[in-house]
Amino acid sequence: MMALLGRDLALALRSGGGFGLSLAFFLIVVVFVPFGVGPDTEVLARIAPGVLWIAALLSCLLSLDRIFQLDWEDGSLDALVMAPLPLEGVVAMKALAHWLTTGLPLTVIAPLLGVLLDLPGPAAPWVFLSLLVGTPALSLLGAFGAALTVGIRRGGLLLSLLVMPLYIPTLIFGALTASRAGEGLDFLTPFALLGGVTLLAAALIPFAAAAALRINLR
């Protein structure tokens, strides 16, 4: 299991693995927002938590098709299905590797990019914490979408279409936590629910994704 995680991390960090790409994409989306809505700092501060959340979510989408695609192409996915490891565990490890190389870096730089959007001070730690708690769900749900579409050539667009509706609860609760913290309102309720969604995804998705992989590899 740990060897699998190490292998996935090494693959992602290798040049061309797409590790830096989603961070660069994140930066560009955040830079685009003032161009789109104007440089008014009051407006930017108001929408900053939501913008950071949406940008992080979109950046997360970019690298999803890599979760299983490489293993599918070189046949090692067949080996993993046959291996004595539970496939559910393999899926969980893959999602974890995706999170470590995508969700976690995005979480870390989000408060820094918040400076560009005049993110209110009290919101910054909660942007970080809400992303920290919420992005694992994005990776898990993404792994499910990737498992569904692994057999489809050029499935990237379909993958986004399938996964994005599943991201809605995480986005709503995550952005609500951050923006309410910025406005000094109660943010613990959405924060708790955000954690709940992540836990639910962690409990449910490995089984669903493993089932989808078994179907695709039949």
Partner: peptide, 27 residues
């Protein structure tokens, strides 16, 4: 294969559609 995969999607989708419904209420 399509029938199997869409069935799995329908199940997971149902769970998250219900979640979204409550998320929208709180939102």
């Amino acid at each position: 294969t399509a029938a199997d995969l869409t069935s799995v999607l329908a199940i997971v989708g149902s769970v998250f559609a219900v979640l979204s419904r409550y998320a929208a209420l709180i939102w």
